[in-house]
Simulated scan of single mutants.
Amino acid sequence: MNHPQGLHRLPLPGSELLAIEVGNSRLCLLRGDQPLAQVVTEEEGGQPLFRLQEVASGQADGAIRAFCYWHFARSPEHQRLAWRLEVPVDRAVRSGLLIPGSAGLFIAERSLFWQLPDPWLRGAQGNGYPQTMVMSANGRRHPLRAPKARGEVYRRFDARLGSWVSLRTLDIELDLERFNRWQNSPRVLEFWQEGGSLEQHRDYLQKLADDPHTLTLIGCFDDEPFAYFEAYWAKEDRIAPFYAADDYDRGIHMLVGEEKHRGPHKVASWLSALAHYLFLDDSRTRKVVAEPRADNARMIGHMQAQGFYREKEFDFPHKRAALMALGREWFFERCELC
């Protein structure tokens, strides 16, 4: 695994590469082969302070964003950066990238930076979808959901892993065979209990495709599929009677199908990416929940390592479940995305 402290080149979604040339108290930012700005490091009151110099025309916001990304990815323990700026930063302030501070300073907060959807969120998102309440056939009242996304929905370079982690929506024709293989593996079968034929799994996936409350996703490392996820709106789900589900809570079911992509370091990457995507997809989502089998100690341990807490145990008709929950505030204030 790569250590972020040695990071000098950081790929961005698309084809761009962020490069940092480090000199004495000065860093040169390049996006692709184009200079963005010089960043000068100073100290004020014993704290590091950053200034922009030689900013490319109209690129102040992009340069600040790029530097914050590099710094927060390189130093997950740092919670904020202080800037003294002589360039217009209205756009950065309006977006939440910068907060006006005292003595003319501007502050970039890690917890706000990772809530900015660009460039991690790909394509449309549910954030701007207006709210109107509807009733499901099962008698549950909930917001009308935005149309489901299609294609790639999330992409980020994991600097610790040295790999791209991405999420795309499941394509039944493309993914049916691998889904069938994964579900019939003894390890997955023990917990999912969804083994079956190709046709049975086609029916299973088609029902979910037709269900507006569930989004089926394929997780990829460097564009290689390795996992299957179901992201559902908790208010319309069978979990709703077992806790006080908020209108925009999301739930997850998780399956790692490829053996070579197992292990705590891989779980830390994909589980944080999955939670990050769901929190970005709609800023009204306050909590992500899951209900693994209560005796699945390994998965529960992985989840707790990523900030989920065990709220309680309860009985579904088919299993004794542990209710695991991850709060939005905790995730963005304590996460170590890089």
Rank of each mutant, 00 (worst) to 15 (best):
285 T>H: 03
263 G>R: 14
252 I>Q: 06
275 A>S: 13
306 Q>P: 02
274 L>M: 08
245 A>F: 02
293 R>Q: 09
291 E>H: 01
309 Y>Q: 15
267 V>C: 04
314 F>Y: 11
289 V>F: 01
287 K>Q: 13
319 K>D: 07
298 R>C: 08
303 M>E: 11
261 H>E: 12
246 D>L: 04
293 R>L: 04
313 E>Y: 12
321 A>S: 14
257 G>V: 11
244 A>L: 11
297 A>F: 02
253 H>E: 09
315 D>Y: 00
319 K>G: 02
295 D>L: 13
293 R>A: 12
286 R>C: 15
306 Q>Y: 02
293 R>I: 07
318 H>W: 00
269 S>A: 14
293 R>N: 08
276 H>T: 09
285 T>G: 05
294 A>K: 02
313 E>P: 02
245 A>N: 05
295 D>C: 10
318 H>S: 10
249 D>N: 11
266 K>S: 06
259 E>I: 14
319 K>W: 01
317 P>C: 02
284 R>C: 03
300 I>G: 13
296 N>D: 07
280 L>H: 07
297 A>W: 01
310 R>Q: 10
262 R>H: 10
291 E>A: 04
319 K>S: 06
304 Q>D: 15
257 G>D: 03
320 R>F: 00
262 R>Q: 07
263 G>W: 13
248 Y>Q: 05
272 S>T: 15
304 Q>K: 15
263 G>F: 14
320 R>W: 00
301 G>H: 10
301 G>V: 07
270 W>T: 09
307 G>A: 14
301 G>D: 09
304 Q>W: 00
249 D>A: 15
306 Q>H: 10
309 Y>M: 15
281 D>T: 01
323 L>V: 07
282 D>I: 01
281 D>W: 03
312 K>C: 08
264 P>W: 00
266 K>F: 10
284 R>I: 11
267 V>Y: 10
272 S>G: 11
307 G>H: 09
264 P>S: 07
273 A>D: 12
269 S>F: 08
293 R>E: 07
264 P>L: 00
265 H>K: 08
264 P>E: 10
264 P>C: 00
277 Y>P: 00
316 F>T: 00
263 G>Y: 13
301 G>I: 08
287 K>S: 08
278 L>A: 02
308 F>R: 09
258 E>R: 03
248 Y>G: 03
306 Q>K: 08
282 D>G: 01
291 E>Q: 11
303 M>L: 14
257 G>E: 06
312 K>N: 07
271 L>K: 13
261 H>D: 11
323 L>S: 10
247 D>P: 15
280 L>P: 04
258 E>K: 05
314 F>W: 03
265 H>T: 11
290 A>Q: 00
279 F>L: 08
317 P>D: 06
321 A>C: 04
252 I>V: 12
251 G>W: 00
284 R>M: 03
286 R>W: 04
320 R>P: 11
297 A>G: 11
304 Q>S: 15
296 N>H: 13
322 A>H: 02
320 R>K: 15
261 H>Y: 14
292 P>L: 02
256 V>G: 02
262 R>D: 05
261 H>R: 11
289 V>C: 09
311 E>Q: 14
271 L>A: 12
296 N>W: 03
280 L>Y: 06
287 K>H: 05
